[in-house]
Design a protein around this nucleic acid. Structure first.
Lengths: 146, 146
DNA sequence: CTAGGTGCAAAGTATTTGCAACGCT
DNA sequence: AGCGTTGCAAATACTTTGCACCTAG
């Protein structure tokens, strides 16, 4: 980890109201060092090279700290359980970032997106759906009350 | 469950190459009777009213059977573990339905979608991302070999 | 110095698996 | 009749929690 990165991370933490710790810095660095979207376990394995005594629980706690502070986002919806979509016809989703509930949105409610740039070689596109993220009325209300 | 629905379900199973069983019919009916996207546990609770001795494992197996046959789709990405997004700037996702890996796609690679219809009352939209679903080159290749 | 962060072990969820009995075709 | 499906119980995977110690501010 270079000095410049340390400085960046301190600044990042300040902006999000977080305490700077060695563990957090290393976990953050590890996260951005992956090209994809690693599981907590994978992050743990990589971080262990630098902090052998770190625990997986710390990785989990830190990821949630990062998410809660807004430093990074949770990738799409993670309900913690399997969900299926019974609608056959194409449609989109309205996702509440508060309670994680998903409402279906008619295809007609959106002007379609269109691919114009290039995508990774060999990827075979099957369909495109739009996810509209935000707060449902319930979550918006309870947030206002706090 | 009415006769007409039974007939529909038989037909649906035939189209997807599945054996028709009582459990599958009841699970399918239960699924479409929910307005949202229930967890396996919630499906189980509802199905138990009709088949008291059904097991949660059967619900899981059946959901996977439905997904694998293409009778219904998995809602968004379910990695079975927590994933985060480190990129700060707006971007979209390319999701492989085979291996579940996610590639980031530059905002510029897509003509943006635009909301034109109405959405549920009180929902506060924060951002919109497009998910492009398909097969990555690896998965496309290994599928061809089978 | 002290509030909050960390490591460890144990507890909680979520999901899968092995296997014998059963039901569809 | 034969093979795939089901129910059950046990195993595994994923995540959170409680608590004593440690560390950043």
């Amino acid at each position: 980890m270079q000095v410049s990165e340390q400085v960046d991370f301190r600044e990042l933490c300040r902006r999000h109201g977080l305490t700077v710790t060695h563990q957090r810095a290393v976990i953050y660095d590890s996260l951005i060092s992956f090209s994809g979207h690693p599981s907590p376990e994978e992050v743990y394995e990589r971080v262990r090279n630098l902090i052998p005594r770190i625990s997986l629980a710390t990785v989990y706690k830190t990821l949630h700290t990062f998410i809660d502070s807004g430093m990074l986002r949770e990738l799409s919806l993670h309900h913690g359980s399997l969900r299926v979509d019974t609608k056959q016809d194409p449609h989109h989703h309205l996702v509440c970032t508060g309670c994680k509930s998903v409402f279906d949105l008619d295809e007609a409610a959106l002007k379609p997106a269109k691919l114009v740039g290039k995508i990774p070689k060999g990827f075979r596109v099957e369909r495109m759906t739009v996810e509209v993220h935000g707060l449902c009325s319930n979550c918006a209300r309870s947030l206002r009350q706090n």
